[in-house]
Design a protein around this nucleic acid. Sequence first.
DNA 1: GCCGTTTTCGGCCCGACTGTTTTCAGTCG
Length: 594
Amino acid sequence: MPAQIRENSEVAVIFHEMADMLEIIGENPFRIRAFRRAAQAIENLPEGVGTMLEKGTLARVPGIGSGIMGRVEQILETGDCEDHATLREEVGAGLLEMMRVEGIGPKTVKLVYTELGIQTVDGLEAAARQGHLAGLPRMGEKSQAKIIDAIAAYRRHTGRLLLGEALPQGMAIVEALGQEPAVEQIDLAGSSRRRRETIGDLDVLVGSTQATAVMDRFVALPQVNDVMLRGDTKCSVHLKQGGLQVDLRVVRPECFGAALHYFTGSKMHNIAIRDRGKRRGLRISEYGVFREGTDESIGGRTEEEVFAAVGLPFIPPELRENQGEIEAAEAGTLPRLIEDGDLRGDLHVHTDATDGTAPLEEMAEAGAALGFEYIAITDHSKALAMTQGLDEARLAKQVDLVREVEQRLGEIEILAGIEVDILPTGELDLSVAALRELDWVVASVHSHFKLSEEEQTARIIRAMESGVVDCIGHPTGRVLGQRDPYAVDLDRVIEAAARLGVALELNAFPDRLDLDPPHCRQAREVGVPVVVNTDAHAPGHLALREFGIYTARRGWLEPGDVLNTRPLSAIRAWREPRLPAKPSKKKTKKRKNP
DNA sequence: GCCGTTTTCGGCCCGACTGTTTTCAGTCG
């Protein structure tokens, strides 16, 4: 994992743990919330927390005051802070883990610990099975059975689902439930509407005057496996596929907007908006916007009305993380976020010459069918032997094929390119002279993931310094849920990209989404172009660009920040000044610009 | 612990559902 992300998440974990432990011992809830808020703020920092502490910019981050700052200093110096260590002696790791079981909160943990001496999830399960929990205050047979089920679910299902897996299921439910006549409005809410890279559960919101009919239809959907809970307006189920939890909420149509805003979150964004409302004498809930002390709604049919009530324009869901979007909305400087239709082409596509499944011609046709103006064929290079990567001779043949297919199809421009391996030393897997002849060069790390951060960073920067690299592919190498990013200092990579005129890829494959949104934002701020590519290995993969667009939007990117929103002539003009001079005697025929 | 159009103290977002109660605590989002 890159050092700065590792550092931030390590520091954040300590504050999360403090919040959990303080909850168990029954501390002041606002103090607890402050620790949670600080933890979240640190997780979302654009830079390393240590760097920001040194630069003095950490103090300006909302939620970080002098108390947190002092603890951060301690943590960075010694690896922990005093009161965390003290609490840790009082509250063991087992108690913390118990809180992660659905339905078990701090009060229950404290109860079973003080009454029964239970300190672990295993101990809790044993006590429940032996019927020891049912006798505790405010506990009964049902609670005990629920805890047994919840522990089983906890063991079965720990991780989050990729957006690419969860979103299609969510959309299918919206589609199916939308058929119900009682449904007047319906939309996804929660993190799937904000298009987070991973999803814990799906939230579906319906506007209707007939909640019972809507919920009857919902629980009868063929996708539904079991019903967890059902009330008058709220219902939770598990789906058959992957056991994904779906929460349905039904509200009256006149408060659909307020509810949509509320259930879309994020929590931090909502708190900030409500706080803003409060300062204006307004109470904002999922039922609308109310003047303090009255029940008269002054808005809430649409989200726009909610924002307008606190003096703001509409903020796109992808930005709602309380990461400056409210301030930008206030100042009128919200970005005009990139949309699917802004992309003119895909600059990272594989064929069956290496590890793709389809011939070059089919990939190009698929691109044309999606309305792309251009597509770059970028198969692997020879270092990636398991994919039968191209050597210079095979590459030259492929270039000829590209020219021939382009001529034959006539409906899409095809760039002859490569995804060349960056060797451990930072040298490229093919000669600079051969790469210089290509229309587009993606350079990627596919091996030696365990180099030190210094070596990995130097390796990537050295590759960029060759002058022939147009774009760094999947810059951190992360595979969501499977592989952490390799150790690399992205601050330095972004800085080098700015200096050397190299673009960074936002790989749209749902398990990569690499660059992540904070670094997209950082690239945008220093003028490094981002390229939204699918890395397609089959024709159907080209449609995955939507997930790249979602992530780009979460990274505040406008069309102008993304290289492949530009016409091909502009891309050629962008790369040309950086390319090393060609050997003068061997004059190759240059392609004419369109 | 944080923060300030309520500015250095006194607030801090708001409501649904469940299970165990007979008015509410705990949990979740």
